[in-house]
Structures are given as structure tokens and as C-alpha cells.
Design a protein around this nucleic acid. Structure first.
Length: 506
RNA sequence: CGGGGCGUGGCGCAGUCUGGCAGCGCGCCUGCUUUGGGAGCAGGAAGUCGGAGGUUCAAAUCCUCUCGCCCCGACCA
């Protein structure tokens, strides 16, 4: 690792973005690779972040009537087979449990024994097993809607993993609802999409585009898939949450029926929606800089760290008392209906201690030394500003101002990310310009290039596939807030009625 | 799963071509001196050189096999 270099993280984003991503996670103590292929260990600093994300989402879900429940990790193979498209979508990445016992093998090691009659699939998602429950819970239209969420881990046996963005096991929430009408189910699908957008924009400070997926990007078995899409600092798109209208496909597969008011039996209309630890990857790539991650205050693992500065033992005692009292007072301050999260780092490691917290992305660093005690003040550094850009504030004023300062940081991060996205979002109507936009000037390694292109698409899967083959660019979504507009397809030139978002994607 | 690259103390790396005591920087531990922007000096701990097998008097280095990681591609949240 570079010491006393220009930046705390090496390489920089510019030099090697994927490697920067790995290094920044390592340097921030968010997570690390594990002994198990493709799986990660989420360390306390990262898990606290996830807990805050969970807390925010969970409250929003519950405010719309959703209840939490828990379903088994194991899914009978036969359940997965019930929905044809669904099987096809997930079959390749399923982990399968075939045995239930270990025995001593001939060479002293343990070998699986006790073959299961029916193999169990480790859930890649839970539509089928939850559908099984729904089929028994629902008999009348009076039982509907049913609005369930579970916080769980899922396993998808990925060929290529990237920490937080695509791991074989990941943590997520999956919501599953059943309704008496298609309209109500669609309304729920879009409502949950809105909640994901709110989480991203208000809590993670990540501007997103809400949209509908093209048929080829749809969830296996869904009638319609919606997503929120966000631009990372390498200008690739990251899908940070998805919401699916499943029509009656899964109801049919799982036998979820109800008797309507006219005494007729009908299949229910279902939805599912999910968001995962992948959002943490998005957070890192949206806000991180060459000195580490930058945590938005609303979800930050901690809001402020107090850094006592002292020479003698006598000074240390005084400074520690001052810091301890300050910490207690700060913990009584409410920030968005919760106490401030405060840490004290009393390590006697000089300036290196500062850099640790910069790399960890904590919003506020509060230095407290003898000088501050004399002046009844604190010396404040902000992660959204330069590392040496610090100000002295009177103690009482600081305590009163913290929520406002945190909100200002939150806003700055959002504005910065939005400005970045705007700078690399382009409306393109000519094919050559489109190809040039998505082609790097350097072949190996390619520099950071491209972005989001709003272009017309005729709706043909052939055009979509051609652009993907030629450029590695896909349709991220068909934006919901854009109205119809006549134009010609960026690929084939045929008539088109709307613009879609093209980008390279994670 | 195909192509490329890389595995050497916690992190970053040199050493491999041309076999000969396992090294460097940072971090860590102890002591002293320091301290408002990555402190200095002295001492110290920490490695089955990814793993297995082979060649050799001798292997981090050569050969065979294998595992893992990273990048690109296909697939996916």
C-alpha cells in the first residue's frame, strides 16, 4: 500500500477502477473475502451499515402494511420445477443439498452419507416456497391482499463474483404479495419500486432512474419487471432494486386461489420485490473517492468519531473527560428520530488515526485537544470536504448544529452524484454517435468512458441483442417518468415511440 | 464455463528468467522521545513462498498436476 502518497487508496479510480473498488473495501473494513469461494465476510463496520439500511427499508415496508415472516432456506426440487420460466432462469445457479449425514471415510476424512429421497435446493429466491404457504393461507377474497416480506440470505452459484455486487451468498429482503386484482398487484409493484427509489435517494444519496425492464431483462416468470438504475463513477449502471408484477403465473404454479365475491374461484395476482447487500457496492461506487469510502449520514455506521489529542497523562485525563462528556451529550441529540451514533478513538497513533477514519468514510471527525478545552470548542473535519479543510466550532454550537451539518453532507453527496450522472448522460439519435459514445479510446486498458444514453428503441429483441453484441451495452430500463415521443430506433432506424436508457451494466 | 494475468508475514511488493541462509516498505508488539495532519530512534514478533507430487546434494526459483484470486467475455441482483 502506498504510504504518504497523494491518496490513501492505491490505485486511484482513474488508474484502475475495479482494483480501486477492491482496495477501498479492504481499507474501510467493510468486508473481506472468506474461505468459501464466492462468499464474503461482512465485518462490523459493513454490517452496521447494512443494519441501518434494513432499518430504513423495514420501516417503509411496514408503513404500507407489510408484515415480516420467515420461510425455509431449503426448497424441495419439485417446487422449483413448478414454473417453467422460473426453473430455466435459476437452474444453472442453484446449490443443491443431496445428503443429510457425514461419515468417516476410508482415509479418515468425512464423506457425505444418507442420500436424500428428494434433493433440496438452497433458495435462490423464495417465490415457490412462499407460494406454497400462500396457497394454504388464502381461500377467500377477504384474505387478500396478503403482504409479506422476509429478511434472508440466498444463494446463487455465480461463475464470476465481486464482493457486495455479486456474491454466491448474499443478504437481502424479498417481499411477496398476493392480490385479488391485477390492478391492485401492479399498484403494489410500483409502490415498492417507489420505496426503493426513496431508500436510494433519501438514505443512500444515490440518484436513480425508475423504469420498466425490457422482456429480455425480465425476472424469470414475471409479467413485468421494474427496477431502479443508478450510475456508478465508472459510468456503468447498477440495478439497485427490483419489483416484479408476476401476474397469475406463480399463483397458477403454486395453486394460489381464492373465492371472489361472486363465489367464483380465481387465481390470485402476485408480486415480488427485492433489494440486497448489493446496494452497499452501489454506495461505495457512487460516493467513494481516492481516500476511501464516504458514508451518507442517514445510513452511516457511525456519524462522528471523537479523536482526543494529548501529550501528557494529565492532558490525556482532561481530554478524555471532555470527550466522554461530549460523547454523552451528542448521543442525546436526535438525528432523524434516532440517537446520533458516536465513537471515541483514543488510540495514541498520531495522524494515522485520522486517515483510518477517512478511509472508513465516517461523516464527521471531531478533534479534541487541550486548546479546544481552553476555548470550549471542537475542531471539526467533514468527509465531504478536503482532508485538511477543518473548522473550530464552539462546543455548544457544534452540538446544536450536528443534525444540520449531517443533512448538509447528505445533500452534498446526493447533489454531487446527480451532477456526475447528468454530466455523463446524453440524448443520442444518430447511430454513429451512439457507437462512438460507448467505445473507449484506449483498447487495453480502456479508460472510463460512456455513460447513460437516452435513445429510441423500436422494441425489437434483435436490435437489443445487436447492440449488446457490438458494444456490451444493454437497455437498463424504459424510464417511467418519460412520456411517449416519436423517433427512430438507434439501431435499425424503424419507428419508435419512446426513449430507453442504454448503458454498460454491472 | 472460454481467454489473459497473478498467488512470497496483516497489507503492498522484490526475489523466479540464470536453483545455493526468505527479503523490503507499511502495519503489529516493547521501551524511550514525541504529538493540532499519515512521528522519530532502538529492540522484537510474525512465512509450511497457495497446495500435492516430481527432478536435484540443494527448489519460492525447474517439471507435472491441482486450488484460489483478479481482469475480459458469456450468465446474473
Amino acid at each position: 500500500m502506498k504510504k504518504r502518497g497523494e491518496t490513501a487508496i492505491s490505485p486511484t479510480r482513474e488508474e484502475d477502477y475495479p482494483e480501486w473498488y477492491q482496495q477501498v473495501i479492504k481499507a474501510s473494513d467493510l468486508a473481506e473475502r472468506s474461505a468459501v469461494r464466492g462468499c464474503m465476510v461482512i465485518r462490523p463496520w459493513g454490517y452496521a451499515l447494512w443494519e441501518n439500511i434494513m432499518g430504513a427499508l423495514d420501516a417503509m415496508f411496514k408503513a404500507t402494511g407489510v408484515q415480516n415472516a420467515y420461510f425455509p432456506l431449503f426448497i424441495p426440487l419439485s417446487f422449483l420445477e413448478k414454473e417453467a420460466e422460473h426453473v430455466e432462469g435459476f437452474a444453472k445457479e442453484c446449490a443443491v443439498v443431496t445428503h443429510h449425514r457425514l461419515e468417516k471415510g476410508p482415509d479418515g476424512g468425512l464423506v457425505p452419507a444418507g442420500l436424500l429421497q428428494e434433493p433440496l435446493v438452497v433458495r435462490p429466491t423464495s417465490e415457490t416456497i412462499i407460494g406454497d404457504s400462500f396457497s394454504r393461507w388464502i381461500s377467500s377474497y377477504r384474505d387478500l391482499p396478503i403482504l409479506i416480506n422476509q429478511w434472508a440470505n440466498v444463494v446463487r452459484w455465480e461463475l464470476r463474483t465481486r464482493i457486495f455486487l455479486r456474491t454466491s451468498e448474499f443478504l437481502w429482503q424479498e417481499g411477496h404479495t398476493a392480490h385479488a386484482s391485477a390492478e391492485e398487484a401492479i399498484e403494489r409493484t410500483l409502490l415498492m419500486l417507489d420505496i426503493y427509489a426513496r431508500l436510494a435517494e433519501e438514505y443512500l444519496a444515490m440518484p436513480v432512474i425508475k423504469g420498466r425492464k425490457s422482456a429480455s431483462e425480465r425476472f424469470p416468470g414475471a409479467v413485468d419487471t421494474f427496477s431502479i438504475e443508478s450510475m456508478m463513477q465508472d459510468r456503468k449502471a447498477l440495478q439497485a432494486g427490483t419489483s416484479h408484477f408476476l401476474g397469475q403465473n406463480f399463483a397458477r404454479a403454486s395453486g394460489i386461489t381464492f373465492q371472489n365475491a361472486e363465489e367464483k374461484e380465481e387465481y390470485a395476482w402476485t408480486t415480488s420485490w427485492g433489494s440486497s447487500t448489493r446496494m452497499i457496492g452501489g454506495l461505495i461506487m457512487t460516493h467513494g473517492d481516492d481516500n476511501g469510502i464516504i458514508l451518507p449520514p442517514r445510513v452511516a455506521s457511525a456519524h462522528a468519531v471523537l479523536l482526543p489529542i494529548y501529550r501528557s497523562d494529565k492532558e490525556k485525563a482532561e481530554v478524555m473527560t471532555y470527550a466522554g462528556n461530549l460523547a454523552r451529550e451528542l448521543q442525546d441529540v436526535r438525528y432523524h428520530d434516532a440517537p446520533l451514533r458516536i465513537q471515541i478513538d483514543a488510540r495514541d497513533t498520531g495522524g494515522a488515526r485520522n486517515w483510518d477514519w477517512i478511509k472508513k468514510g465516517i461523516p464527521l471527525r471531531v478533534e479534541i485537544g487541550p486548546r479546544d478545552i481552553t476555548q470550549n470548542a471542537v475542531y471539526l473535519g467533514r468527509r465531504d470536504k478536503g482532508n485538511t479543510d477543518k473548522v473550530s466550532l464552539k462546543r455548544e454550537a457544534f452540538i446544536g448544529e450536528v443534525p444540520r451539518i449531517l443533512d448538509e453532507i447528505q445533500k452534498n453527496l446526493y447533489e454531487r452524484a446527480l451532477a456526475y450522472r447528468k454530466a455523463y448522460t446524453i440524448t443520442l439519435d444518430d447511430r454513429d454517435g451512439f457507437y462512438a459514445f460507448f467505445t473507449s479510446k484506449n483498447a487495453d486498458p480502456p479508460e472510463i468512458h460512456g455513460g447513460f444514453a437516452f435513445s429510441h428503441w423500436c422494441g425489437s429483441q434483435d436490435c437489443e441483442a445487436k447492440i449488446k453484441d457490438d458494444l456490451g451495452v444493454t437497455i437498463r430500463c424504459i424510464p417511467l417518468d418519460a412520456g411517449p415521443e416519436n423517433g427512430s430506433c438507434i439501431c435499425c432506424g424503424n419507428a419508435s415511440t419512446e426513449r430507453v436508457v442504454f448503458a454498460k451494466a454491472y
